[in-house]
Design a protein around this nucleic acid. Structure first.
Lengths: 246, 246
DNA sequence: TGGGATTTGTTCGTATGTATT
DNA sequence: GAATACATACGAACAAATCCC
């Protein structure tokens, strides 16, 4: 009798509703977001194996649903999917790391150029609020801080209204998390909140050239934290249970 | 007796091997590539419904495999996936169209900047060969021509060696196919082969500023063919059979 | 509006492939 | 290296939602 360790029909009918805001959400979405967040917050490190059975158990869904989520994550570059060998958290090479930051420079410069002087009051307010949240989370130095630092850049991209641009920036940001986990210092990942403030100021002033320069410097600083350091391996089981409950 | 029209166990065990070059290929890959090509060559127009059963029948695979392919295509933006309502070929809004070309400008400028003066002899040869193929296919004015025009840009991106960059450019190019199908003139989609030649020349000369200007002009010309025109609807069945056999 | 046909979402069994001893 | 254990790839059936008349 093979693989009899599957759980009962999965009592997760209460996992519906209460989603962010837009449109109905499939169950695969829930799993996708959970794993994505776990990777971004560096709870799941590069090369961590992601067995379908285990994940399905933790999230209360079947392997089919997990597969759909893993497929999406693979398309996004966060997960590697080798035929017949299952999924692992991606382990970007040093070369890929350079590639990521290369494109980030180009696209994030486009973002601030589009935004300079064109920031709505509402947009500026959202940015201010976000930076305030970053400041608040700074002391704790936990995964929250890592995520917020990246989300500042995603928020900027979203404010351009260009959905494709924000999707790409979002992907690049999450890959940056992986890169920092692999090659960066242990947890110096806070993105220099002061620099974020400077960028907002320059955007409000409408100083296009200045904000492009600031963003370049800021990214240089981020890249500067790309040093050699091995990543420890932890047990997936404990980690996932924290993310299964959204 | 619901849905009894499914075919026999599907005798497609010979669908393995003989793939392009790199790594083993899942069956979902085959379906993915087939549908993708059909969309890029404008055989499947925007909003065309993509029923899982029908596609699976044509490709000789089950719905599970089709779903995986559709999930990937959706992540890429070529397909829209609405919950409980199935998949359709994406129909980019005019706004999205502008977004696509906006990012194309930025990324393709990065491509040629990276390439200027750094083109290997092999790379230049591949570009020359490609343009020759474009020239040859130009008379026929068929789907081949559409695909080749886009692949020139993808080839440029690939020559940078930045795999993420080439993935993004590839996605943007295929979306451009959709945009041209929607808003462009019927079939004036050949990308001005002469302009491609000029770009190659400038790259070989190492004329960075010149090639950026040329690429901008070239993209302007492409964007210039974005006019209002409705797209006719055709029957998926006939179309897919041509693409099922690779 | 309603009911049947159709399509999608999901589960789960089986076959096949990979790792391990 | 063969046998065993295990994980993945795929398919068929079932349940639920949607569509269409």
């Amino acid at each position: 009798m093979p693989r009899t360790k599957r759980k009962a029909p999965a009592a997760s009918q209460a996992a519906n509703d209460a989603n962010g805001s837009a449109g109905p959400v499939s169950r695969a979405d829930t799993v996708y977001r959970g794993i994505r967040r776990a990777i971004i917050e560096q709870a799941l490190g590069p090369s961590t194996k992601l067995p379908e059975d285990l994940i399905g158990e933790r999230f209360g869904v079947s392997r089919t649903v997990v597969r759909a989520a893993l497929t999406r994550l693979a398309a996004e570059g966060l997960v590697e999917l080798r035929l017949n060998k299952g999924a692992t958290v991606a382990r970007p090479s040093l070369e890929e790391a350079h590639d990521v930051f290369d494109i980030r420079r180009s696209l994030e410069r486009l973002v601030v150029a589009r935004l300079a002087g064109r920031l709505t009051p509402g947009g500026a307010a959202r940015l201010d609020a976000h930076v305030a949240a970053e400041e608040k989370a700074k002391g704790k130095d936990g995964p929250e801080s890592i995520r917020l630092a990246g989300e500042f850049h995603v928020l900027l991209a979203e404010l351009t209204g260009n959905v494709i641009l924000s999707r790409y920036v979002g992907e690049l940001i999450s890959r940056s998390s992986l890169i920092l986990a692999l090659y960066g210092r242990p947890h110096s990942s806070d993105c220099a909140v002061a620099e974020h403030r400077e960028i907002i100021d320059a955007l409000v002033r409408g100083d296009t050239a200045g904000v492009e320069r600031l963003m370049d410097h800021h990214l240089d600083a981020v890249i500067g934290r790309a040093l050699i350091a091995p990543a420890p391996d932890r047990d997936i089981r404990d980690i996932l249970s924290a993310y299964a409950a959204e």
